[in-house]
């Protein structure tokens, strides 16, 4: 029934506006995301990227506008929303495995399902060896991988990521970006990925939304229709990167 070339709309953001008192941060933003799509959002620091995700995840009430998931208003209790924060959010008193399982536990999934999925996910991200370690025994990048695994584990309707690899060094970043793309392709989640790194955005996303300065609007939309694994040296890759860079030269 579904048209394969045009998957159905999963997320619909309608006229989203957010004010902090007098300060208008998000100015009437509308866009939609298709099921299973990987969208990157780039924008200058302080333009309201984090605010944007907080509104989408219902952590902050929007001043106006609506966020629809599968046609109904977004609600963390009803929909599976995952949010990978900028800083690590491991629970220090839980092992790696228990941390990855946390989201599923909150949602009251049966233990058998949790166990099965944990084995699967830990294997996918190569965390099986350290499944029983505690977060203070592993590195910062591993902690962020736990957060990403936990986010994928609940089979999210919408996966939000707020500069998850912003604080990591370049080499590790490439590795984790590959891992992320891998997870996304295997588990088919809908991902909104925020970054201020243009190269990262072009590397991971199918579509890039470029935000303006405050009051923030979507300034442009760039499709990235490149085969994977992508090559940073590919002329087409470089062209898109430079195109996006041009778009935001006015920051």
């Amino acid at each position: 029934m579904q048209d394969a070339a045009r998957p159905r709309t999963k997320i619909e953001v309608c006229n989203l506006t957010k004010r902090f008192g007098e300060l208008l941060v998000l100015n009437d933003i509308s866009f939609s995301v298709a099921e299973g799509e990987f969208v990157a959002i780039v924008g200058p620091t302080g333009c309201g990227k984090t605010t944007f995700l907080n509104a989408l995840s219902c952590l902050l009430p929007a001043s106006a506008g609506q966020i629809l998931i599968d046609g109904t208003p977004a609600d963390p209790k009803r929909h599976n929303i995952s949010y990978v924060f900028q800083e690590p959010t491991c629970l220090p008193w839980r092992t790696v495995r228990e941390n990855v399982a946390y989201g599923m536990e909150v949602k009251g999934r049966p233990q058998r399902e949790i166990d099965e999925r944990m084995d699967n996910i830990l294997e996918l991200v190569g965390l099986t060896q350290c499944a029983n370690l505690y977060p203070n025994q592993i590195s910062a990048s591993m902690q962020q991988r736990i957060a990403v695994s936990r986010a994928f584990a609940v089979d999210p309707d919408l996966l939000l990521m707020d500069e998850p690899y912003g604080q990591l060094d370049v080499k590790l970043r490439f590795y984790l970006e590959d891992e992320l793309v891998n997870l996304w392709r295997k588990l088919k989640s809908t991902v909104l990925f925020i970054t201020h790194n243009i190269e990262e955005a072009v590397y991971v996303a199918e579509r890039i939304l470029v935000l303006s300065n405050k009051p923030t609007r979507i300034k442009a939309e760039v499709k990235v229709d490149l085969p994977r694994p992508r090559d940073f040296m590919d002329p087409e890759f470089v062209r898109i990167r430079e195109h996006v860079t041009d778009l935001i030269r006015w920051w």
Binding site: L59, P76, F85, T89, Y102, K107, A147
Partner: peptide
């Protein structure tokens, strides 16, 4: 840690779950 609480909220955790799973261990 307020970010941990936000994290739990986005997974749809109830107040009671957050209290039991996050606040008490943090306070230990």
């Amino acid at each position: 840690n307020p970010t941990l609480i936000q994290m739990a909220r986005t997974y749809g955790a109830s107040d009671w779950q957050i209290f039991r799973q996050l606040c008490i261990p943090s306070a230990l």
